[in-house]
Write a protein that binds this DNA or RNA. Structure first.
Length: 481
RNA sequence: GGAGGUGUAGCUCAGUUGGCAGAGCAGCUGACUCUUAAUCAGCGGGUCCAGGGUUCGAGUCCCUGCACCUCUACCA
């Protein structure tokens, strides 16, 4: 099955024979550029009976009626019916057409008409072979269901499963609309290094590689953050980067080792500026791509109507675990959490127990968009403290459909404080601290709000799919050797 | 890392108690000038994921491995 990619079976033999026969008749099996009136979707949109058109596409079905043939071609924009009549094209051209197989790319000249069953159709006068397909397509009715084949041979999935193609069209449109939105707000899109001497800006195991010319170890970035902040120092007041991050960690339903991340930084604002921005951005995408603010799936409906709920971390904990939660002794709190079915590490303190409650019992239940604010400072070492309470930080986590979609910070711009936090984070690996970044901060980074948005996850939530592999064209899979 | 599930024709799937390997679509031959999952008649097509084992006999039972899926654990 999936490993028989170039298997030499009867289908391939038959198609090779058809190709040889066509060659014999003067048809070049692998053609060159072919000028068409337009995409099939454009031809359909400008349909006019008796209008001459030139079109191209892949043959997807053939209905042979004897002296006339109906077939469908598809160019990725649309499917369109063509009609080949022996009387109209002549016997030689007609007989040669019968040597075509489903999957072949052809170009056609003809005239538009509407059949008795009211199907817009091209009645062809001539056709050209553009590319012979030597292997068959998946079945027309059931499509390609085998999950592994759908990922490994995504092209077959895209050809035979219209839902999959539609989902990737939405992903493409989502990314385009995010860029439009941010560009219209005056943000500059920048590109910063994906290969870094130190993989900073997040805590994750990086992929390591070796740069031969410099004879040095390099890492694929786990986040662009530290470079984007250098640009804040350099005078870019509104920047974003929308591109790939790489993390050398496990694979599962919601994690792919390379994933698409949007990071946004804006000078002279703070976390509340980010809140306005993300609400505007996501509702813009929903409006323009989905045409509605009611998105997600039937099982996981999401209503993006504004305003979105805002709740402090503490409020959510108390709401779930009772007014007295923060007055309980560690033992009593543990007992209460365990009674809720949580499995707690004996070494955990109150902070960790409480956070386990948040992650396991609360976050997953936040179906509608919720800004969780005022997180404990210990959990978020790189954000600024709230002015009225240094034990909590001025951040939010936007949670939708039980998933963290966008964390935002009022960014740390004090180089002294930043250095001490990075040092304590690095522990004994002092060389892991990005000194050049700290130097940049000492030149003065304006106060700023910053935010990260996991694009794959956003697409999953808006489209209501639950596997990240379904929104990444070529997800990571193990080698089959 | 752990547990469970799946793997059969190009594709989608059946396969009973261990007893000749099945269907639909696709392919091939033939019929058919408005079909659209075209229809009708006929014909081919298998490394049953791989490797061992049990048995007179294994797609089916046992062991090992591989891939994929789900749950779980780890992962700021």
């Amino acid at each position: 099955m999936t490993d028989a990619i170039t298997s030499d079976n009867e289908y391939r033999q038959q198609r090779l024979a058809n190709m040889a026969a066509l060659k014999e008749l003067g048809y070049e099996p692998f053609g060159r550029a072919f000028e068409r009136t337009g995409r099939l979707s454009e031809i359909r949109a400008a349909f006019e009976e008796e209008k001459p058109v030139t079109a191209a596409g892949r043959l997807t079905t053939i209905r042979d009626m004897g002296k006339s043939i109906f077939a469908d071609i598809n160019d990725g924009s649309d499917r369109f019916q063509i009609y080949v009549q022996k009387k109209a094209v002549g016997e030689d051209v007609f007989d040669a057409f019968k040597l075509l197989d489903i999957g072949d790319h052809i170009g056609v000249d003809g005239e538009l008409f509407i059949t008795r069953t009211e199907e817009p159709t091209i009645k062809i006068t001539s056709w050209t072979l553009l590319s012979k397909a030597l292997l068959p397509l998946p079945e027309k009715w059931h499509g390609l269901k085998d999950v592994e084949s759908r990922y490994r041979q995504r092209y077959l999935d895209l050809i035979s499963n219209p839902d999959s193609r539609a989902l990737f069209n939405r992903r493409i449109a989502t990314i385009r609309e995010i860029r439009n939105y941010l560009s219209n707000k005056g943000f500059y899109e920048v590109e910063t290094p994906m290969m870094q001497q130190q993989a900073g800006g997040a805590a994750a195991r990086p992929f390591a590689t070796h740069y031969t010319a410099l004879d040095s170890e390099m890492y694929l970035r786990i986040a662009p953050e530290l470079y984007l902040k250098r640009l804040l120092v350099g005078g870019f007041d509104k920047v974003f980067e929308l591109n790939r991050n790489f993390r050398n960690e496990g694979l599962d339903r919601t994690h792919n080792p390379e994933f698409t991340m949007l990071e946004i930084y804006e000078a002279y604002t703070d976390v509340s500026g980010m809140r306005e921005l993300i609400q505007g951005m996501i509702t813009h995408v929903a409006d323009t791509v989905y045409g509605t603010l009611k998105v997600g799936s039937e099982a996981q409906p999401v209503d993006l109507s504004l305003p979105w709920r805002e709740a402090t971390y503490r409020e959510l904990i108390v709401e779930r675990m009772g007014d007295d939660w923060y007055d309980l002794s560690l033992d009593d709190a543990r007992a209460k959490a365990e009674a809720e079915g949580l499995d707690l590490d004996p070494a955990w303190d109150m902070l960790m127990v409480t956070h386990e409650v948040y992650e396991k019992l609360i976050e997953k239940t936040l179906q509608q968009p919720t800004f969780v604010t005022r997180l404990p400072a210990q959990l978020v070492p790189l954000a600024k403290a709230c002015p009225d309470d240094p034990s909590v930080v001025d951040v939010f986590e936007l949670v939708i459909a039980g998933q963290e979609v966008a964390p935002a910070y009022t960014e740390m711009n004090d180089p002294i404080e930043q250095r001490s936090r990075l040092n304590s984070q690095a522990g004994e690996d002092a060389e892991k601290v990005d000194e050049e970044f700290l130097t940049a901060l000492e030149h003065g980074m304006p106060p700023a709000g910053g935010m990260g948005v996991g694009i794959d996850r956003l697409v999953m939530i808006l489209s209501g799919v639950d596997a990240i592999r379904d929104v990444i064209l070529f997800p990571q899979l193990k080698s089959r050797e």
